[in-house]
Design a protein around this nucleic acid. Structure first.
Lengths: 190, 190
DNA sequence: GGTTGTCTATTGAACGTTCATTCGGTAGTG
DNA sequence: CACTACCGAATGAACGTTCAATAGACAACC
């Protein structure tokens, strides 16, 4: 893992926050600079352009998510436990980092997303896939296309987190389990 | 239903297409004008600003979706059939109108979305809610928060359509049913 | 039936602003 | 002296929006 210069990190973080507040447009470089406490020119010392700043920001947030989920993982869980844990901790990560959620949502539905390398966006769901593979081998999961299942799971997580953040529904311990159970029932053989 | 002037419609349609191709930013008004075959100034005859153009475009697409789904509905179906039909026809609508899907995705994860009136975005899932209510009354569905369930269903539809359009997975008759079955199993009592 | 006035639809050049990016310069380090 | 990190005013292009001008439709009036 590359060590990120302090100012570079500050730029990434403030971009993240500003994009949550003002959206993709509506965040001029000058504002990023001010919020990060650097000069406008400094940004261009670290990033070629606004586009690459945003592309790198995506990689940066993907790293954060990955890290957070893996931290919670323990050995010797059965598949269902494993699924619940992954689902819930991913969802909680997004809830605790709304700016990441907002950014990713915006990013994936923007013309930027198709531009990132295929393995970049595959890695983003690597841990989900790893899990699906396991479930398949044990004959526990339905025979549904791999990618399809992975994406359906991931989108359920994002959606749940989003609803919670918007305050439309309060998600507590109970609701998390209800939701994880719903998704679990949708992917396992009945 | 308001009758929309021809040029107004052309403006809406070309905005839709351009946003799919170039994203929210990346679609200057001048380009919208050219594609719609009108002068730049004409847009401002129908819309106060770019913002209101986009807000109205959202309402416009919502109307289209609503209409398409209701067309397929018949009387005397049981709940499960009803669900399958709604799920599949909504999904197919998005697949047949990728520009609508792209636009809605971008719109809801942008700072525009929170600005539309609450009943505007509630209406957008009205038919899903109508269905959930029915299922609740019959005791077929799980006891999960209303809004939560509606949004989970809706997001599954959008995600499935998106995956298909991106060509990551080919969805045929069989896959549609598999998917609808998955979601059905996730919302019904087991 | 012709004349006048009003209203709407439309045009596209011009305006003013915003914004990404550049660049010449300063400071610190080795 | 060379090299990197950093600054921030200056630049120039892009873009949303305005506006004076034109044309057509329709009605009122003589």
């Amino acid at each position: 893992m590359e060590i990120i210069a302090e100012k570079k990190k500050a730029i990434l973080e403030s971009t993240l926050k500003l994009i949550k507040e003002n959206g993709f447009h509506g965040t001029p470089m000058s504002m990023v600079a001010k919020r990060a406490g650097v000069a406008a020119g400094t940004i261009y010392h670290y990033f070629d352009s606004k586009d690459t700043l945003i592309m790198e920001l995506f990689a940066y947030t993907q790293g954060q998510v990955q890290e957070a989920v893996h931290k919670d993982l323990r050995e010797g869980m059965d598949l269902k436990e494993n699924f619940f844990l992954r689902w819930i901790s991913r969802c909680q990560f997004y809830i605790q980092h709304p700016d990441v959620l907002f950014f990713i949502e915006q990013f994936v539905s923007s013309p930027y997303y198709p531009r990132c390398s295929p393995d970049q966006n595959e890695r983003s769901q690597n841990d989900i896939k790893e899990f699906i593979n396991l479930g398949r081998q044990h004959g526990i999961l339905r025979d549904v296309d791999f990618k399809l299942m992975a994406i359906m799971i991931h989108s359920s997580i994002m959606t749940a987190a989003r609803v919670h953040i918007d305050g439309k529904v309060q998600l507590g311990e109970k609701e998390f389990h209800q939701l994880a159970q719903m998704i679990w029932d949708s992917i396992r053989k009945l």
